[in-house]
Amino acid sequence: MAERQTIDARGSFCPGPLMELIAALKLAQIGDEIEVLSSDKGSVTDVPAWVAKVGHAYVGTTEHDGYWAVVVRKAK
């Protein structure tokens, strides 16, 4: 059964939101969704760009007060 996991990477300078997402995807099952909370606006473009390149599914981004929630589904 698919799971949804949240990584709170707000204020994470190193390794940062995308690196955390890459590590989490390695442990996830196909169909699992991962929500990354990031205070780095660069994640809004970096994450979907990388996800498209690798072949996972970009679910969407929600803007909150001072941070963004980017959701990705493991597709392969």
Binding site: L18, M19, W50
Partner: peptide, 10 residues
């Protein structure tokens, strides 16, 4: 490197 620059720290 895994992300779009040479190190995690910008």
């Amino acid at each position: 490197y895994p992300i779009g620059r040479l190190h995690a720290l910008e």
